[in-house]
Design a protein around this nucleic acid. Structure first.
Lengths: 184, 184
DNA sequence: GCGATATTGAACTATTCAGTTCTTTATCGG
DNA sequence: CCGATAAAGAACTGAATAGTTCAATATCGC
């Protein structure tokens, strides 16, 4: 046995995530990652192959932590869950605005292919969860059609978090959107 | 009089725009800009203060060219215009996918402040144009509320263009969304 | 406390980048 | 054709970057 390391992989990922989230992949420097995680380069490179590897780990971690919130699985399934998802899905915690996954979509050109897979897989899951909630309401329009509409609207809300518009306007928008949905 | 220059400012902007559009600001290199525009650094720097200046010029050019399309001003005003805007607003020309302005929103952290102003001003205009079209239909819900909802949905459609999903799915989504709108 | 072992920190490397400078070259008016 | 002028090209600069290497150091089992 030798010296035990002073950080865990998960700790690093958790601290690195907000940096990538805010600044994106290309504009995040190793220096920032060192500062944010409190682990220096040699530590980071023993744990992760390269910057891309760490980024993907952060993305995965983000998605898992979102899934753990179980926003769309609470009983009873229905519009209420969809509304809560739209209102509370995009985060609002300091530097972490909107959705890390949606933010990453803009950067696929620079990201490893793996990131594309992770994001699309996550979207497929979201679409499914939306669908079972919509299904419970027995709307007139095709369930999957509504689900993909909701996902697009959600994506829009997420990038709009990059603007300095207040929370009130977002809430209002969601409530109006829900009104429209309930009539389908 | 000396030697006349072999390029115009506008030509450069037009050729540089697709590069910024696709790769974003941070990940676009001067080398790529030289190659895309056919003008080398010394030429670019006599015409533009720096990379940021060129980027903002491209953004402005994009917005002007979009405004020239007059997508939301055709008579008669109404839902049809909104539908055309959603269908044809986000571009689909090779490297140029979605909306350069919406794409830029993800990068405000790196962009000059000016870019923020240009984008928000453009969004305000869009919101206004949407509103006058919606107004013409005399819906039950507040006009501005619907307009901001449409703009969010539009933003979502734009970033989703970064995914490799077909045009058909986008069209379907828009048509369903329009159905919902018309019931408001 | 000692040796084995693994982490840590800091110095180092090679590359790439935005931006500058200076020489060469092309075009104009006369 | 010539001199003035301005653009174009290429070489250069300094800073920043991702990634590496290696010596110093801390912790473990014994």
């Amino acid at each position: 046995m030798g010296r035990p390391k002073s950080f865990s992989r998960e700790e690093v990922v958790e601290k690195a995530m907000p940096v990538f989230w805010k600044r994106g992949f290309a504009d995040t420097t190793l220096q920032e990652l060192e500062r944010a995680t409190g682990v220096n380069k040699s530590g980071l490179y023993t744990e992760f192959r390269d910057k891309e590897d760490l980024f993907v780990a952060c993305l995965r971690h983000y998605i898992e932590s979102q899934e753990k919130r179980g926003l769309l699985t609470k009983e009873p399934l229905g519009w209420k869950n969809v509304e809560i998802f739209l209102k509370n899905g995009p985060l609002n915690k300091g530097e972490q605005q909107g959705c890390f996954s949606v933010n990453s979509m803009r950067e696929f050109a620079v990201l490893p292919d793996e990131a594309y897979g992770v994001v699309t897989e996550n979207r497929a899951l979201l679409q499914h969860l939306l669908a079972i909630n919509i299904e419970a309401e027995k709307p007139g329009m095709a369930v999957s059609a509504i689900a993909e509409m909701v996902l697009s609207f959600f994506s829009g809300l997420c990038i709009e978090r990059n603007l300095k518009s207040g929370k009130a306007s977002s809430t209002r928008k969601i409530e109006n959107f829900m009104t429209a949905l309930r009539r389908l």
